[in-house]
Amino acid sequence: MASVSMTVNGKSVTGNVDPRTLLVQFLRENLRLTGTHVGCDTSQCGACVVHVDGRAVKSCTTLAVSCDGAHVTTIEGLANGTELHPMQAAFREHHGLQCGFCTPGMIMTAVDMVNRKGSNLDEHTIREELEGNICRCTGYHNIVKAVAAGAQAMASTGQKVAAE
């Protein structure tokens, strides 16, 4: 077993884990933060995307012990209390989700996209940047609209990713 400590959604957490434990398993099983999902086993679908030290990573291919000392933000840490993050609000407003399973990863990827690329995102850029996130329900049409609108809203509220 290995000891691991990190800050998750602003709170210090410690765990004693099997060294092969993945970050997503640590989040879901040790911390019961089940908003981060596992949709595949080849790092392709992006349902597991969280932010580690401000960067989007696929938590299904990240060892928990490699995040020792890191700041991790999950979908549960994005809203400010009951006030939704602008990207969350945009997904609801633009019907950017159906079954909701890929949604946490999509939103975390979208926020990271804005952090890296700025808030004026054209359709082509958004579609290319979503390459690593698979949605089976929406056909991406409304996700693309949601990301564009969420990016604009992030700029107008001066919002950066929470809990960095």
Binding site: H37, I75, E76, F91, R92, F101
Partner: peptide, 16 residues
């Protein structure tokens, strides 16, 4: 009408 179920899904509170 915007979806009633969305709040839990976009905040990671869905229960699968």
């Amino acid at each position: 009408v915007r979806r009633k179920e969305d709040f839990r899904f976009i905040t990671g509170k869905g229960q699968y």
